[in-house]
């Protein structure tokens, strides 16, 4: 149902998104770009974790597979970067199928273990298959460009990162309108029951894992393009944990949740940094505040799980309503207006 009003709304959003680079500095843009890449990855993990109810502790490693494959194809075969990113995603999906298939027949716990193992094994491969990955020194890649138009600056890369993030969001939200997408949710809600009503739990878990890994591969390739470098340290276990945290904090099982979570977790270090810098003027102890930041991150994960399991995707609309409530109480005028609307 596209009516005039929502068309206007989307046009405004599009206009805002399109003009961000014009009025943002490099630093803000780099944050936005990293957040956009994280959104792509988190939307993917959310398909597996939020919608299918399976946990992966190897998301970063699958990002790495995509990054290395895309990087290898670009440097050695000079493939156009869009094609390389696509193949990177497919390679990650295949890796996901290989590592996921033994454990997906079992309880979710075993997938957690299997993905943890694949994280560590893949890290080893990244570091040691030197002829392909460049080992610990990594692999330099060129800035992406189409027909001579280079995306080498933060301003230009923004359109690439944002474009991919939007495509990721759009495809994921359409996925759950299909039979496959709905089968994922059935598995999450009642694993064995789903099997009884005719959904092959293994098959759909595997599909979900493959799709999720595909997104990871694309996000990993994008990160590689942004950094113009692929190194093992971009794809370590703590990054995997961060992605799970994005899904948990954002709100598992909602598209908006993955977006909020990715943005929140990406910006969290800067936020805490800023607050502690203010505090540091009164009580200067960098080490303590660095510790506080880690504690805050851990505590946020715990608090969200305990008290806000629906995450930011539930909180943000609540804040919206709360603000609305404030205005409604203050003046009759706005109520009248909302009445007319």
């Amino acid at each position: 149902m596209v009516n005039k009003k929502s068309l206007v709304k989307w046009a405004v959003i599009a206009a805002i998104l399109a003009t961000v680079p014009l009025y943002s500095g490099n630093y803000i843009l780099s944050l936005v770009n990293l957040a956009a890449i994280a959104v792509t990855g988190a939307v993917g993990l959310n398909i597996l974790t939020g919608y299918t109810g399976q946990i992966s502790l190897g998301h970063a490693a699958f990002m790495g597979v995509g990054a290395y494959v895309a990087g290898y194809l670009m440097t050695n075969y000079h493939l156009p970067f869009l094609l390389a990113v696509l193949i990177g995603g497919i390679a990650s999906a295949i890796a996901g199928i290989i590592f996921g298939s033994p454990s997906l027949r079992l309880k979710g716990l075993y997938l957690a273990m299997a993905t943890l193992a694949s994280q560590i094994l893949l890290e080893y491969v990244f570091k040691n298959w030197r002829s392909v990955t460049g080992g610990v020194s990594g692999m330099y890649i060129e800035s992406p460009s189409i027909l001579g138009f280079s995306f080498g600056t933060d301003q230009r890369f923004y359109y690439l990162a944002m474009g991919f993030a939007l495509i990721a969001i759009w495809t994921a939200s359409n996925l759950f309108k299909t039979k496959t997408g709905r089968a994922f949710i059935a598995i999450r809600d009642r694993d064995i029951a789903a099997e009884i009503i005719g959904i092959s739990s293994f098959k759909y878990k595997l599909i979900s894992f493959a799709i999720s890994s595909f997104y990871a591969g694309v996000a990993g390739s994008l990160l590689a393009l942004y950094l113009t470098l692929v190194v093992p340290e971009s794809f370590v276990l703590s990054v995997s944990i961060q992605y799970v945290a994005m899904v948990i904090i954002g709100g598992p099982g909602t598209i908006a949740g993955a977006i909020y979570g990715a943005i929140f977790v990406t910006l969290l270090p800067q936020g805490i940094e800023y607050i502690t810098n203010i505090l540091a003027q009164f009580y200067p102890m960098e080490a303590l505040f660095a510790a506080l930041r880690d504690m805050t991150f851990g505590l946020l994960i715990i608090l969200f799980l305990l008290f806000e399991p629906k995450g930011l995707s539930d909180i943000i609309p609540r804040i919206g309503r709360w603000f609305k409530g404030l205005f409604l109480k203050k003046g009759g005028e706005s109520r009248n207006l909302s009445h007319i609307q």
Binding site: G25, I28, L31, G271, F307, L312
Partner: peptide, 26 residues
């Protein structure tokens, strides 16, 4: 009690977002 906790989370959230956004200004 849940609502109170939510409020605390919201404050943390808003602060860190706003702060990260305005980092350039300050």
């Amino acid at each position: 009690r849940k609502r109170k906790i939510s409020l605390a989370l919201v404050i943390v959230l808003v602060l860190s977002l706003v702060v990260a956004g305005c980092g350039s200004a300050g």
